[in-house]
Design a protein around this nucleic acid. Structure first.
Lengths: 213, 213
DNA sequence: GTATATTTTAACCATATGGTTAAACCTAAT
DNA sequence: ATTAGGTTTAACCATATGGTTAAAATATAC
């Protein structure tokens, strides 16, 4: 038995096969969610035998956990750290939005994936966040920046929580609900990509507008 | 065999048992999604035998379809019609947001449910929308109102599509991603309810602000 | 080249799950 | 009371699915 079931090691240590398996698993889990994913489909996609999945990752749960952790690890720095940096608020928001949209463009299923798994298994998320040290968004810097602006009479009196919710909603939902929007607004793939790209400029504008007096 | 598999009839025609089944099914499907839902759990929740499910609704697919259709029927009038009414734009937006939040407060799983099922089975949604005549949001009225405001120099030049995406994102995402937000922002249930209630005022403000020059 | 360890496979297994069937059980009309 | 219709149940069935095992294949060390 290979030692790769251990999670703290980096991808570099993984064998080619293990990478293939992981990527196939990520693809399938992201698309279908835990319940919808079939070990057979993952095996097929990785072009290996189903038993190999259990050789590298002992169970569906373990394999899923690896995928789920990676997803959180990807958005973690953006979600939990980017907003806490020592950067002027307006610039920070622009950077955040741009980075988030770029990341999720590369992994478009992440928002929906995390949301759905959170709904069906809240404990998993909480456990992971807690052990990962950045379980709760560090709002200190953002809070003080906001307060400063409010005290100066520059910004309106908005809570950090609402601000965060607004930013994430405007960024993530167009990805999570993409099929709904595309259908309902009758937009093709190319058109929707353009819409998403436009939002890199649009969202910071909206957020800053909503802050200013 | 009862005639209730037919979908166009109203709830009134349904027997008590059938209602019990449907409500149990709705609950389970909304929470767990199609793949995560177990017929046994639905039966247990409805306090009937599993075979009765198949007596009233021939298959899991049929039962799911009924639930899915009802969800769309609920949000349909709001999503597809409310925005097309002959009401001043600003008032319309306020009404929409308030109605949407009220509805989804009653059925908090609907946004996530629809989003997830859309991702895993796009055709189902499209088929349903097409046959239901309001498959595509009627944007005519909204479009002309927006154009009017732009021509008057009152509004900025924003596309209807971005406007709709913004409104829906700000309304729906806080429900769909509720567990994520609550965890990550460390807010309890009562606190989050308050946050949601606040948004009835907040969202129209943001949207109008983002429109105005 | 042979022995040893690792990787991969084919064939199985146990269980969960959607679905079926035939009989029992009402209920209302005659 | 009997019958006929719809309703409900217990017991089953077939299959899909996660997981196991033992052997084959391949690489690695000596």
């Amino acid at each position: 038995m290979i030692n790769s079931v251990v999670f703290y090691q980096t991808m570099n240590d993984k064998s080619e096969t293990e990478k293939k398996i992981f990527e196939a698993a990520r693809d399938v889990f992201h698309r279908r969610g835990f319940d919808g994913a079939r070990m057979q489909e993952i095996a097929d996609k990785a072009k290996i035998n189903k038993a190999l999945l259990h050789y590298y990752y002992r169970s569906k749960d373990k394999l899923f956990e690896a995928v789920f952790r990676e997803a959180l690890k990807r958005i973690g720095p953006i979600m939990f750290e980017a907003l806490d940096r020592e950067v002027p608020l307006e610039k920070k928001l622009k950077m955040f939005v741009s980075n988030y949209i770029d990341l999720v463009t590369k992994h478009p299923f992440i928002p929906g994936f995390i949301m759905h798994e959170m709904h069906t298994n809240k404990t998993r998320f909480k456990t992971f966040l807690k052990e990962n040290k950045h379980g709760i968004i560090k709002l200190n810097k953002l809070k003080s920046q906001l307060k400063e602006g409010i005290d100066k009479g520059q910004y309106k009196n908005v809570s950090v929580e609402q601000l965060i919710i607004n930013v994430f909603s405007l960024c993530a939902f167009p990805f999570a609900a993409r099929p709904v929007f595309q259908t309902v607004l009758d937009i093709d793939d190319a058109g929707y990509r353009k819409v998403l790209e436009e939002r890199k400029k649009l969202i910071p504008e909206i957020i800053l507008m909503s802050l200013k007096k």
